[in-house]
């Protein structure tokens, strides 16, 4: 089925996969917002949203509907186009990450082998870094275009915070790459499945650093300085309303899910279910089990994010910078050197 030198079936397959993944991600995100409220409630001895639908399960729909129905306000003094582009950019950047995440082993359908990964690029990790850095543009543009000093200040905070923590994050990843020897996420996951220990065993310090940096990248408490209400009123999305605001809020949750997926893939074996031999079941079933495993790991990470958010108070900005530059980066460097030394000694 090749026409004009294109493998059309391949393109259709990938398109369907993209649509499914994006939609599923959005749906999960929708329920992550619900989960956030529910987790917060349970940790605080209260029932949480329980009015919309059974157990409040329709709450995210009600929230979404509310956001859509809200009046769309574009401030007079804003840069109109940038103001509109901002939330879209933030959302796009967050969603683009899911292109390289290996969701599970291959499916075998209609006589084709369908990889449950949109693109198995051999520089997957670099791609993620590139896209995550793009996310800062969404916040920066939104904050700047609002023409509001609070928005601008919080956008600046977000940008500097993201840049500071990306360094430590990258250094922690270098150590990981030194052990795995590849940049492809698929390969990293497969390495962990094939009888090896999960990477967390080789890189415990690296994981801690990566996790903390991921939290900072997602602007989650205790690093949600860009949204520090008491200092900045509301944060970089102060002037936003309706679905544009919804996009910013959503992007945060998409980011959270994506970083959970990446951490699960890089340190916790991705779709690998431990002590279970996938070759004993049919490949399609194995793929489904793998997908479920990965989703469970993601949910656990997301819960961890929420758990931390509802336990720890927000840092001060100087504490945040101190932690980033004076603790995380030296620690990551030390981790890198240690890993290198260990690898050398093994050789």
């Amino acid at each position: 089925m090749t026409l004009l030198a294109f493998d059309w079936a391949f393109i259709i397959e990938k398109l369907i996969l993209i649509v499914i993944i994006v939609l599923t991600t959005l749906l999960i995100t929708l329920y992550t917002t619900f989960g956030e409220r529910k987790v917060a409630a349970i940790l605080q001895d209260r029932p949480g949203p329980n009015r919309a639908g059974p157990f409040g399960l329709l709450q995210p729909l009600a929230d979404g509907l509310k956001l859509i129905m809200k009046e769309e306000i574009i401030p007079d003094a804003s840069s109109r186009w940038l103001f509109i582009i901002g939330p879209g950019l933030a959302m796009t950047a967050s969603l683009m990450t899911c292109a390289v995440i290996p969701w599970s082993t291959d499916l075998h359908l209609f006589g084709r082998t369908i990889a449950l990964q949109v693109a198995d690029v051999n520089i997957g990790i670099l791609y993620i870094f590139a896209v995550v850095s793009m996310g800062v543009y969404g916040i920066m543009i939104g904050g700047w275009a609002s023409n509001n000093k609070f928005s601008l200040m919080s956008a600046l905070r977000a940008a500097s915070q993201a840049i500071s923590y990306e360094i430590a994050m990258g250094l922690a990843l270098i150590a990981l790459l030194m052990t795995t020897g590849t940049l492809s996420l698929k390969t990293i996951v497969e390495d962990q499945t094939a009888g090896h220990w999960w990477n967390i065993v080789y890189q415990p310090l690296g994981f801690v650093i990566f996790f903390i940096c991921a939290m900072a990248e997602c602007n989650r408490t205790p690093f949600d300085l860009p949204e520090a209400e008491n200092e900045l009123n509301f944060g970089y999305h102060q002037e936003y309303s309706s679905m544009k605001l919804g996009f910013y809020l959503f992007a945060e949750y998409v980011n959270m899910i994506m970083s959970s997926a990446i951490m699960a893939s890089m340190y916790f074996g991705g779709y690998d279910l431990p002590f279970f031999d996938e070759s004993t079941v049919a490949p399609n079933i194995a793929a489904m089990i793998g997908l479920g495993t990965l989703l469970i790991k993601i949910v656990l990470f997301v819960f961890l994010f929420m758990w931390i958010r509802w336990t720890i108070p927000r840092f001060r900005y100087d504490q945040l910078m101190n932690l980033g530059w004076k603790k995380m980066i030296p620690l990551a460097l030390f981790n890198m050197l240690l890993t290198g030394a260990l690898i050398l000694s093994k050789l």
Partner: peptide, 16 residues
């Protein structure tokens, strides 16, 4: 330690 405290609250009776 703090997270353990919040975690223990998941099993507390809700006064709601």
């Amino acid at each position: 330690k703090g997270m353990m405290i919040t975690f223990s609250h998941m099993f507390k009776k809700q006064p709601t």
